[in-house]
Design a protein around this nucleic acid. Sequence first.
DNA 1: TCTATACGATACTGTGGAGTTCCGGATCTC
DNA 2: GAGATCCGGAACTCCACAGTATCGTATAGA
Lengths: 224, 224
Amino acid sequence: MTQLELGESGAAAAETKLGRRRDHTRDPEILAAAIEVLAETGFDGMTIDMVATRAKAGKATLYRRWPSKNELVIDAVACMKMGDLDVAHLPDTGTLRGDLVAMIKPRSIQEAEKKMQIMAGLMSMLSTAPELADAANNAIAKPRATANRFLMQRAIDRGEISPQCDIETLALVTPSMAAYRTLIERKPVDRDFLISLIDGVLLPALGLVGGDPAQRGKVQPPAS
Amino acid sequence: MTQLELGESGAAAAETKLGRRRDHTRDPEILAAAIEVLAETGFDGMTIDMVATRAKAGKATLYRRWPSKNELVIDAVACMKMGDLDVAHLPDTGTLRGDLVAMIKPRSIQEAEKKMQIMAGLMSMLSTAPELADAANNAIAKPRATANRFLMQRAIDRGEISPQCDIETLALVTPSMAAYRTLIERKPVDRDFLISLIDGVLLPALGLVGGDPAQRGKVQPPAS
DNA sequence: TCTATACGATACTGTGGAGTTCCGGATCTC
DNA sequence: GAGATCCGGAACTCCACAGTATCGTATAGA
């Protein structure tokens, strides 16, 4: 956003006046390189030279576009658009469990893990750059929770689960626990893990059976 | 552990031979100072001078004990013992909900938030120092999950909840979601949030009612 | 074709922090 | 009290990286 504003409004007039305009066609490559390096080394380990080299650009070129390393990173995170989690592309299998399981794809797992790497790399910067915290939250964290919320709301609408359910909180279960597992436990977020979340936490909490239907009815009433 | 071994076995003999031995009485203060600075500035923002100044020690003194900044931090995290989550001190109210709610104390919330600050500060280092990742996980993450698991197992033993429940996964719900909320969403982990986890996720998933008993029975059978 | 400008590459500067060395004074042991 | 050693403090070296300046080249526009 930052550089888009500059590129499209302020600078453009001056650029067309004389000679050729600044070549913005390579900006996406630079931003992508920044994201890659960020994911691999973290914000503090990342150097401008690394990004420039990876993007096959000169360091000066980067500084012609972004005033500092911080601005570059903020822009890179804000412009980061990964695979679609748009409402239009979400699965619709007819049952909530079907939908949730259908969202487990190797591609989306891999993407989520990369997002988490990026988030880990940003961690040290988040407390001192609130704008970055927002950008990271919007690009990395929110989309999955939004998708979950949508699927659950649809399940409520068709009467599969009770409208009393706390879907606000439940929509955060998968992203939270996947983040915890990746960032802190350092274990892989594989299919088994996600299935155990669905069948061991989400569906039971929503009043649906988990994995083993045999456990239905075995639950005792609460000691009141 | 590292410095304890050195202090008690190898170096001790040499130290007693001549003059007085190295004064290890101030090590805890130094480690505590390191933890404080770590929580405030993160690993990369932390300097040895900051730690030395805060501990009212000389920088050279720190290097006499730990060979590098990394070792110091690893030791500080490993030796970090905060308020007790020992099994012996856990609440026992007779019901699982009572126990879980009894664990919500301003003191423990505050402590958990500090732990998360530390974890955030360590994040950038975790991928390059596996030993640190283990130390951090043991000191920061595991204790709360262990406590939750103990409370749930006790609830199983007294027949309050089904033994089929996936308590392994469910024990991680609170720490995971609290971590996500602190580190990524940057919202406070307050009592309301924890209560909504207990009543909106944990208890329903365990087959107990959540907050509002009126919703019992409204749940439809699963679409099979 | 000519000119102006942006480009990539590279050399340079300045700063900040890791790790080292040295010193005067305090403290323990004998 | 004497001797040895460790302490806190401060000055020092060394290096990595942010940010700047320069240069030869490539290319778009006139």
